[in-house]
Design a protein around this nucleic acid. Structure first.
Lengths: 338, 338
DNA sequence: GTGAAAGCGCTAACAG
DNA sequence: CTGTTAGCGCTTTCAC
């Protein structure tokens, strides 16, 4: 047992600062947390002592006492994805400015461990929690509910959210792309998709809308999440033989779309005349590649900001309200591959 | 199976479980932390109570008492970068398996806030800390030292590390690329670089080695970090006029390299005959783009794993040792753009 | 194998 | 404006 045996150099604590400044510990606490309740001179003396001793307040102890950890837990599948990376950045920035620290956890795309992860995070008593997706198993949902903290679900919609929600309907995204293609006269459609729940929703939304509009699905491929360029190329090679006439392809990620386009070009397919392609995500790649390609843009950064705003509002003591369910907007960015 | 409904808003604590199981709180604690010191029957009874009440131990309280938070802080500039995303993933996974939670913080590329960030993290009393880079200002360095916890610096080398180190010499990377180009008979060189410290080191290492070998630097551009494809394209357009003869270009990131190659192709430059290009990072893009391009591969995932191993060793009570300074290996992956 | 007492370092709540 | 008194929920230590 490696316990804390080595107390040769004890860390500075609030009583040390208090003694050095000739005040009570509580006064030191006030200087740090509610400076306006302390006289200027006292505050100056205390600050000098803090500085001199290199005091770093123990937020663990403070959190236990105040029952506010000033931490917010965030669960996202991955950060390797520009989509989530951007969202996490803005979310984190917004919360940091309000004095909260974000505990980020990566859940990956297999969700069996989800409940365990949530348990581990709740053990740290975060003041609030953000979680990706709106479809959690019973155990996870129960823990989240019983934690009695503000929770925001992102990146999806749900007719039965746990608490707050900032997302969009992936089915609608797929349908919008199908409508976009239809308006350009397409009747033959294909899809390349990762197999995570939300990518599949987009794909199904696309297929359903395309078929309802009288179109034909001539090929579909689902690859194991996460999406990669190489997976896009491989999948495209498989469906290439089926593309004998003018076809419109929807990919659940820009990485897949880029891979598909690369492969299509190698095989001499004319884009967009023989093959029209639309991706999802509006990664830098989609606009910076040559030629650039069409994609669906989602306001991920805005979603991160909104999620933070919702949580902060509740953390400030405001009651839940209607507007706590927000649709994140998306739009199709047309770039010549369609 | 979730048990009887408990609508009481007060969270379940260890004393509730103890009462329900008819034991002392200490016994509940043992069942959770040192199960082998409790009789099987008692343990079973306690576990049943834990389950039934939905008890989630308060790690904040436990941490305060045991002086071990079971948290490890990690500071990286960004996660939008595949390099760091991979490193963070393996680091996090390795620590989670050992029962530690990683507090991830994004520092961005402007390092004035560095000390403030470190202070905020240390306030949570992490048991250990990982930080990117080896060049910290005096205040940051002092806090890190006085925290008396294991610290590992990554992604760089230093002749004066704070504690442990897992990195590589960016100057050497640049020099290796220069030698590689020289061996192919190049004498005219150019560079595209981000302006963060380590990218600049790689670039300078390249330039110095190229010149010492009798080569000539005909063009250099530094763009503001972080690197993007678009920035690579813009910078490439600027230096295109100077590429009148066979030239070898080193880019501090694969994103810049991809942008440069895209632009070069648009302008009809023959690759690699008129322009040879080598990137850095071995992002998926470098191997999956068509044509694929040469780059420097760094064992980032391995670095994350090693950093975790070093920290865990020390957290297990082992004393510091020599091997705590590790060179991460790199190699040039040749792919036809050179 | 189990329990009782005594804090961990800080802040809420209440004086003065 | 400042200080005092009690804990926060858990684990350490030591007793049985």
């Amino acid at each position: 047992m490696p316990g804390p045996a080595r107390n040769a150099r004890a860390p500075v604590k609030i009583t040390d600062v208090a003694a050095a400044a000739g005040v009570a510990p509580m006064t030191v606490s006030r200087v740090i947390n509610t400076p306006d309740r302390v006289s200027a001179e006292t505050a100056a003396r205390v600050r000098e002592a803090i500085e001199r001793l290199g005091y770093v307040p123990n937020l663990i102890a403070g959190g236990l006492s105040s029952r506010r950890s000033r931490m917010v837990a965030a669960i996202v599948p991955t950060i390797a994805h520009p989509m989530f990376a951007g969202l996490v950045q803005t979310f984190t920035d917004a919360l940091r400015q309000a004095g909260y620290q974000v505990m980020l956890s990566l859940s990956g795309y297999d969700e069996p461990e989800q409940a365990g992860l949530i348990r581990a995070l709740l053990g740290r008593r975060p003041d609030a929690l953000l979680i990706t997706g709106a479809d959690h198993d019973a155990a996870a949902r129960q823990m989240l509910t019983e934690a009695h903290i503000p929770v925001v679900e992102i990146w999806d919609v749900s007719n039965d959210p746990i608490d707050m929600l900032v997302g969009f309907d992936h089915t609608q995204v797929g349908a919008a792309v199908a409508a976009f293609f239809r308006a350009k006269g397409h009747t033959r459609f294909a899809t390349l998709s990762a197999d995570d729940p939300r990518a599949l929703e987009r794909t199904e939304g696309f297929q359903d809308a395309a078929q309802r509009a009288g179109g034909q699905i001539i090929a579909t491929r689902a690859i194991e999440a996460p999406s990669t360029i190489q997976a896009g190329r491989r999948a495209m090679r498989e469906i290439l033989p089926m593309i004998t006439e003018r076809t419109a392809l929807f990919c659940s990620s820009d990485l897949l779309a880029f891979g598909a386009l690369t492969e299509a070009r190698l095989h001499g397919l004319a884009v967009p005349d023989q093959l029209a392609v639309c991706g999802f995500g509006n990664f830098e790649l989609s606009g910076a590649a040559e030629p650039p390609f069409s994609t669906v843009h989602v306001e991920g950064a805005e979603a991160g900001r909104m999620a933070a705003t919702f949580l902060l509002r509740r953390l400030a003591g405001e009651p839940p309200r209607e507007g706590d369910r927000m649709q994140v907007s998306f739009r199709i960015v047309e770039r010549g591959s369609t």
